[in-house]
Simulated scan of single mutants.
Amino acid sequence: MTSRNTKTFVATIAAVSVLGLAGCGVNDADVVSQNIATAADNFEINRRIIIINNESDNVIQLIEGWCNAEIEPDAIRTTCKVPGGYHKHINGRNAHTTFSIQQLDTANVSKDHYRVTFNPSVVIPDVEVR
């Protein structure tokens, strides 16, 4: 292929790719929404999260900071990065109660390594000594 044919070929492939993506339903708002969610997962979004009791209309908890929120049917779990560590809060409701679990002190945990804890009775066999 000549240089001109190569440029035309590359331009055609690029145009077809763009049209293909447009046909897939990808739009700017979806991309931005996903990027914000990813940024929040990495503690890059400063948020105000307000937890309200729907029966009494009272505020149960107000959480502000660099936070991620996981919303489940019966609970909202927030993890926030604060100076010196992290806080995790859990708020929920069922048919009879509304609850709020607030972490009072920072947890100095690693964001780069997983923590695994084993139950010694499962790992170490029961040994009988005579």
Results as ranks from 00 to 15, higher is better:
Asn68Tyr: 03
Val123Ala: 12
Glu55Val: 13
Glu128Lys: 14
Asn42Ser: 06
Gly25Ile: 08
Arg130His: 12
Pro83Ala: 08
Asn54Met: 12
Thr12Leu: 07
Leu104Met: 12
Asp41Ser: 10
Met1Thr: 14
Asn5Lys: 13
Thr106Glu: 06
Glu72Lys: 10
Asn42Trp: 01
Glu55Ala: 11
Asn27Ile: 06
Val122Phe: 10
Pro83Val: 07
Asn58Phe: 15
Glu128Ala: 11
Gln61Cys: 05
Val31Cys: 02
Asp57Asn: 13
Gln34Ile: 01
Asp57Trp: 07
Ile13Leu: 13
Phe118Ala: 10
Thr117Leu: 13
Thr2Ala: 00
Gln103Glu: 13
Ile52Val: 15
Ser3Val: 11
Val59Ala: 10
Arg77Phe: 07
Ala11Gly: 08
Arg130Lys: 12
Thr79Trp: 01
His113Leu: 08
Arg115Leu: 15
His87Tyr: 08
Lys111Gln: 05
Val18Thr: 11
His87Gly: 01
Ser110Ala: 06
Ile51Lys: 09
Pro73Glu: 07
Phe99Lys: 04
Val82Met: 04
Pro125Cys: 03
Ile13Thr: 00
Pro120Arg: 06
Ala95Tyr: 13
Leu104Trp: 03
Glu44His: 04
Asn42Pro: 02
Arg130Ile: 04
Val32Glu: 08
Gly85Ser: 09
Cys80Lys: 06
Gln34Lys: 11
Val82Ser: 02
Phe118Leu: 14
Ser100Thr: 14
Gln61Ile: 00
Val59Asp: 03
Ala14Gln: 04
His87Ile: 02
Ile101Gln: 07
Ala40Val: 06
Asn53Ile: 05
Asn27Arg: 01
Arg47Asp: 06
Asn53Lys: 11
Leu19Asp: 10
Gln103His: 05
Ala69Val: 13
Val82His: 01
Cys80Ile: 05
Asp28Tyr: 12
Trp66Gly: 03
Asn94Arg: 10
Gln102Trp: 01
Arg48Asp: 08
Glu70Trp: 02
Ile124Tyr: 14
Asn46Thr: 12
Pro125Met: 06
Val32Met: 05
Ile13Asp: 02
Val109Thr: 15
Thr12Asp: 11
Arg48Ser: 13
Cys80Trp: 01
Phe118Glu: 13
Ile63Asn: 03
Arg115Phe: 12
Leu19Pro: 07
Tyr114Ile: 01
His96Thr: 14
Val18Gln: 01
Glu128Cys: 07
Asp126Leu: 15
Arg77Tyr: 11
Glu44Phe: 00
Ala95Gln: 15
Tyr114Pro: 09
Arg48Ala: 07
Arg4Thr: 11
Gly84Ser: 01
Gly23Glu: 01
Pro83Gly: 03
Cys24Phe: 09
Gly92Ile: 09
Thr79Ser: 06
Trp66Thr: 02
Pro73His: 02
Leu19Cys: 08
Gly85Ala: 04
Gln61Glu: 13
Gly85Tyr: 03
Gly92Tyr: 09
Gly84Ile: 05
Val129Phe: 13
Val26Asp: 02
Ile124Gln: 12
Thr8Met: 09
